[in-house]
Amino acid sequence: MHSPTTFRPPTAAAGLQRLIPRSDRSLAYTLLAPAILTLLVILLVPLAYNLWLSTYQYNLLRPRQTAFTGLGNYIDILTNPAHLNALWITVAFTAFAVLAQTLIGTALALLLNIDFPGNHLVRTLVLMPMLISEVVAALSWRLIFHTEFGLLNALLGVVGIGPKVWLGEDLSFVSVLVVEIWQHTPFVMLIILAGLQTIPNELIEASRVDGASRWQRFRFVVLPLLVPIILLALVFRTMFTLRVFTPVWVLTSGGPADSTLVIGIDIYRTAFRYYDLGAAAALSIILLVVTLIITLAYMRLLRREALS
């Protein structure tokens, strides 16, 4: 048997009370609400729309003739050698670029962590490529790579090496890679340099007292402490490089013979040259999944590092 209750209409005061946070936790939620709402609007809504779009046959020129295809767009992409090739080229491009950026970036950071006269000037100079707009940088490199009038072939000519077709079928992949590495290594360097400065000097002093050589100090003291930072730089650079577009578009437009066709260009062509928004959405979801898989693998490594 339950006691009879009388219904009481909510008063204005009660409504207000509900709004006022009663504990610390609800205060936190209240304060987080605007940020979460913003994220929902600018992140989840477009993502959901894209997901929805990827299950439709939707051409911008015929917006009224849309048709639900389910996984049709995905099956088309995953059975089309041209798209798979683009995916493969993107992964290979990212692997080479990120590896080189990390190695060079770490080396530069170690170098610039040493105090020497003019250190700050050198740091600023090394950061320059990162500060230049991608289009401007790529256009400048297009001039440098020019077979007949470019700086690179002119310099090689001085040391007796004949001209090379930098953006031809043999070298275009490497040339675009060089531009990508050149432009984004400073970012890796900056992160690692910041990481290096957080390593307590006492540890290094102690290892020195214990008789560790320069290499041993790096290998057993500095590097283990740097790993989480390097992984962080890797996550960022991998995510950004997987969607590379500008240098490839400016330098080769995906050519010669689609040999530098990265997925970013594939998506752009599909969406804005063919207006096939359904297929483009599916391609971008596939790119997102690939990025997520790689990022999650990094995160797992990062967590293991943190635990050890």
Binding site: F145, H146, T147, E148, P163, V165, L167, G168, S172, T252
Partner: peptide
Amino acid sequence: PPGAKAYEQSDIITAMSQ
């Protein structure tokens, strides 16, 4: 020219002008 494989229209102007 060997570099023509990477030429756009503007490169034709440059090559002819040079």
